[in-house]
């Protein structure tokens, strides 16, 4: 139940955050899904900075590739490459000194046939990884809130 609650929390927060992006961004941003200005204060520190994010992402990706439902989505991707991209993305999103330079989320997921259940499975794997890293529940929700708006670009099967 905790997981489900957290997801809905994150989605609610995400809605609020996204409104914020549009209010703050005067011109059409090229990458609305990687919005560094949204980073809440000290989330980067709460995640254990770069080293903590690397540990988190290592665990997260291992859970993804072994996942009974969505593991097959990653079978043709080198885990190291996936980790590299996620570390940069989480680091930047949380206010750390990183720049994610990969494809935007829509381009990256366009041909993957991802539905809402797949997306939720990934969120749950991330929550489990954050639990395993001892990241406080409130901090988990702050990261999820930054990631949740991406579902608009990632889910292509309704």
């Amino acid at each position: 139940m905790k997981n489900t609650t957290a997801l809905y929390c994150a989605l609610l927060l995400a809605g609020a955050s996204l409104t914020g992006v549009h209010a703050q961004t005067p011109a059409a941003g090229s990458k609305p899904t990687v919005a560094a200005p949204l980073a809440p204060a000290d989330l980067y520190a709460a995640l254990g900075e770069k080293a903590g994010i690397v540990r988190l992402v290592d665990d997260f990706v291992e859970r993804l590739v072994r996942h009974p439902r969505i593991g097959s989505q990653f079978k043709d991707t080198k885990p190291a490459a996936l980790k590299e991209g996620l570390v940069d993305q989480f680091c930047q999103l949380s206010g750390g000194p990183c720049v994610y330079e990969g494809p935007d989320m829509a381009e990256l997921h366009a041909d993957m046939d991802i539905n809402k259940g797949d997306f939720n499975a990934l969120v749950e794997a991330l929550q489990a990884a954050m639990d395993a890293q001892g990241i406080a529940f409130a901090q988990q929700n702050r990261l999820l809130a930054l990631l949740a708006p991406m579902h608009r670009d990632i889910i292509t099967v309704h």
């Binding site: 989505q73 990653f74 043709d76 993957m112």
Partner: peptide, 10 residues
């Protein structure tokens, strides 16, 4: 043709 970094590319 595929890509090791982006598994969905074909």
């Amino acid at each position: 043709l595929g890509c090791h970094l982006h598994g969905s590319m074909r």
